[in-house]
């Protein structure tokens, strides 16, 4: 196995008014290429904070984070925009699509940031919209799509840049159980087909059981890492 992400003794504290709250303390974690990992734990356990640190949208107070052989710990966040753009993909609980853009344009947007030529953009966007089952909805704006469809657009947006790692924060929390199941099927299928690493946070047991590895968190510490099923070759 090759390590894609390596966290060493990572800690993070937040200030809430005059009180300092320790969100993460002394986290050591290695995520391999192709992993399909769930970060599990109750609210306030540090799942989202850990996801934010791996996603380079927040900085640890101490410790070291290496992503794809790049030590991101000392680099200011605004200088990591290209890493977030080209290496990472994000899927949010509330979908976070750009409301004024159509499904097609939402998926196209990261490619514009990367300077991908128009013809290639078109080919990739159409391919990924078809992959997530929204080939006929490309002209719809987010408010014209169902929750499940919006999350599919968000998945296509995350995948279209050919990322090495996709981070999903409670990706099924705002969906009904059937739709959530379909979304998880899709994520697992993409993991298998493309070899892209998936890390998602959840406290939903039905989601946890789909993961290959489950990292359990409590009060900012990893309490247990369990392998729930073997990776499909």
């Amino acid at each position: 196995m090759t390590a894609l992400v390596k966290l060493t003794d990572v800690s993070k504290t937040y200030r809430l008014g005059d009180v300092r709250v320790r969100a993460l303390g002394g986290i050591d974690l290695t995520i391999d290429k192709g992993d399909f990992i769930a970060l599990a734990g109750p609210s306030g356990s540090g799942k989202t904070t850990l996801l934010n640190l791996i996603g380079c949208i927040d900085k640890p107070d101490s410790g070291r984070i290496v992503i794809d052989s790049v030590d991101v710990t000392a680099v200011p966040l605004h200088r990591l925009a290209s890493l977030r753009r080209d290496t990472l993909g994000f899927i949010f609980q509330t979908f976070n699509l750009i409301p004024v853009l159509t499904a097609y344009e939402n998926v196209e947007y990261p490619l514009l940031l990367s300077g991908v030529p128009r013809r290639e953009r078109s080919e990739r966007v159409h391919r990924w919209l078809a992959q997530v089952g929204l080939a006929d909805q490309e002209k719809q704006r987010p408010d014209q799509l169902s929750g499940g469809q919006r999350q599919r657009v968000a998945i296509a947006r995350a995948m279209v840049v050919n990322p090495k790692l996709v981070l999903a924060d409670e990706p099924t929390a705002n969906l009904d159980s059937d739709t959530a199941g379909h979304i998880l099927d899709l994520l697992a299928e993409l993991n298998t087909k493309t070899g892209v690493t998936f890390v998602f946070s959840t406290h939903d047991a039905s989601v946890i059981e789909r993961a290959e590895r489950v990292v359990r968190l409590r009060d900012g510490h990893i309490t247990n890492i369990e392998v729930t099923r073997e990776r499909v070759a």
Binding site: A81, S82, R84, D86, N96, I98, P99, Y109
Partner: peptide
């Protein structure tokens, strides 16, 4: 604000 956060998360630079 949340939309701006999303744009930055997926790689939009300050200049953009």
């Amino acid at each position: 604000t949340r939309e701006i956060g999303t744009l930055m998360a997926i790689g939009t630079t300050r200049a953009r």
